[in-house]
Design a protein around this nucleic acid. Structure first.
Lengths: 196, 196
DNA sequence: GTTCTTCCATACTGATTGGTATGGTTGTTT
DNA sequence: AAACAACCATACCAATCAGTATGGAAGAAC
């Protein structure tokens, strides 16, 4: 029985992301994605030519989601210092607590090693995030709330720390999330020249 | 023609590591490993029951290699501050410049997500590295060469930064390694309470 | 030199999985 | 209503690859 659905394309991307983030990209096949969207492989391959296309669509979803979450998080905050702090705290939580985020990004990294398109896609997002944070630090600096000398440098250091936190959370056997969360937060705020 | 070789077991592990680090674990199959060691799959499977066993053997090789390299690097240095600085510089170089290291560890992380044994193996190594660095910081602190309050905390932050550097180096399209290397080094030495 | 264990080579299998071939159904255009 | 494009379902293929079956060669033990 054929059932034509509006927005099947984005529904497939959503399913793909959910499955990728749950099982890892390598452990998800095209049949699983189709089944999860209540359709078949024929339909899936009509919307996306290759698995890689599906992966890139899932990436776009991830980027948009980050943007929306962050905007939502900072929407009500006006003070530059508070905005910076909240953004950092949200990012740490995002890296450490949200296992879907960890699993997905790790899978993407593994592919990016050998695929220029995926690498380029992710690099674009990474640049965007960097500029976003540099702006936050700059604003806090203009308000005299941080003594960071070089916004770009401290943000770069913070971002690699974020990435590292994801990896570490994966391998740490038992991990007191809330305690570590606080420690990492304080460490990073020192780096940002903005201690409590 | 059958040719019995001494130490075929470790030669296979060596081949496995080299191939994993070059092509990524997922892109290397058992035939490739055997061929690279100039033997056949029959022999490979006599020494290692499963691919996972080969992977774990490659990990052990990696651990030993880290240990030896680090010892060699610090062998001639006596001053605690210099030892710490050299260890940090070596680690950054190791993460940023050595692509084999990046590729291999990234692959391992991807597997560790879904395999307890690999996760446990890697976590053990990670703990070892952490203790190693904490000791270095502690010694520098005892010598009054750093004002780091909590050695464990700064080392943790540094280690996640190392992991993050690996990931970032992967996706950065064009990357001025030497310039970044210096920036990261200085940032980390500040974190360690030991600026130049 | 026979026996036994260790070690290696060849050929094969079974399962997985991206991707395709093909034909049907829905909705729109003329 | 006929033609056409957009969309979906079913069945299949071809390649890949971890792991096995089996037999043989090298070296040690006696």
């Amino acid at each position: 029985m054929t059932l034509i659905t509006k927005n099947m394309s984005s529904r497939l991307a959503r399913s793909a992301f959910d499955l990728f983030a749950l099982h890892g990209i390598n452990n998800v096949n095209m049949d699983m994605i189709a089944a999860h969207s209540n359709c078949t492989k024929g339909s899936l391959y009509w919307h996306y030519d290759t698995k890689k296309a599906v992966i890139l669509a899932a990436c776009e979803l991830y980027y948009r989601n980050w943007e929306e979450q962050m905007d939502h998080e900072l929407a009500s905050v006006k003070d530059p210092e508070k905005r910076l702090k909240k953004a950092v705290r949200y990012s740490i939580r995002h890296c450490m607590v949200d296992s879907k985020n960890r699993v997905f990004t790790l899978g993407i990294m593994g592919l990016a090693l050998y695929d220029e398109d995926i690498k380029k896609s992710w690099a674009g997002f990474y640049d965007h995030v960097r500029e976003y944070f540099i702006m936050l630090v700059q604003k806090a600096k203009d308000a005299g709330k941080t003594n960071a000398v070089d916004a770009r440098r401290v943000v770069d250091l913070m971002l690699v720390a974020f990435e590292g936190i994801k990896l570490r959370t994966i391998i740490e056997p038992d991990f007191d999330v809330s305690a570590e969360e606080k420690a990492v937060y304080e460490g990073l705020m020192e780096v940002l020249g903005c201690p409590n």
